[in-house]
Amino acid sequence: MTATEALSAELEDYLESIARLIRDRGRARVRDIAAGLSVHKSTVTAALHSLADKGLIDYTPYSLPTLTRAGSQVADRVQRQHDVLKRFLCDVLLVDAGLAETNACRIEHAVDKAVLEHLTRFMDFVQCCPRGGAKWIRGYEHSCDSDPTRDKCERCMEIALQEFRAGRNTAREETFTMTLDKLRSGQRARIHRVGRADPVTRRLVDMGVVPGTAVEVVKVAPLGDPIEIKVKGYSLTLRKEEAATITVEPVAEAAP
């Protein structure tokens, strides 16, 4: 790991970008990397050579770069750091998504692993604790406008206790409302959540539709239902009613 410790922020960005492209689109073309990082293609080629020298990617000119084991470890770490930071900025501090993205990009190179681990744990606590949760965070949003008074707090705690006893899971709230059936043909997305514990969901999960997996809607059947998707490198068809139980996070469109 000595080589990777010394990896510059710039190269980390390249690795992250390559990993994301491979995950989302199945391959990382030089022009997509260039477009994603807003740099020139020749700059990308130079960076790829440098990454290959460090043993992080397999790359020969005119072929597609693939990650080595060490490379994907680094990419994973950077990606995780990025996600944690972005989630913290977005979900807890309620920073605007675009601002959160750019700031996460800048912070991720500077922050230490230990700090991030603490931040992750703190976030889980805030989101899962019955006294906290999404509502509590929303309460913070309101507190920016009004002064919290003691009797309001008491009332709030009572409600939280009631809901907790009723067994309602108030802690986590869906942040993604896009579902698989609503995607257009050709659109790509990442699975966020698969429906409830029923045989249909079970079958989907067994077929590889698990959270975090990249999917692409290939086409809709001529009569408007079912749809065909690509997942884990093969074609799967499912009815729209089944696809509606899957929430997804659309990924950016392919570069022209």
Binding site: V200, Y234, S235, L236, T237, L238, R239, E242
Partner: peptide, 11 residues
């Protein structure tokens, strides 16, 4: 009896 349509389109 649920009938998932979920089906592979084999090559």
């Amino acid at each position: 009896e649920s009938t998932p349509f979920v089906m592979e389109l084999p090559p």
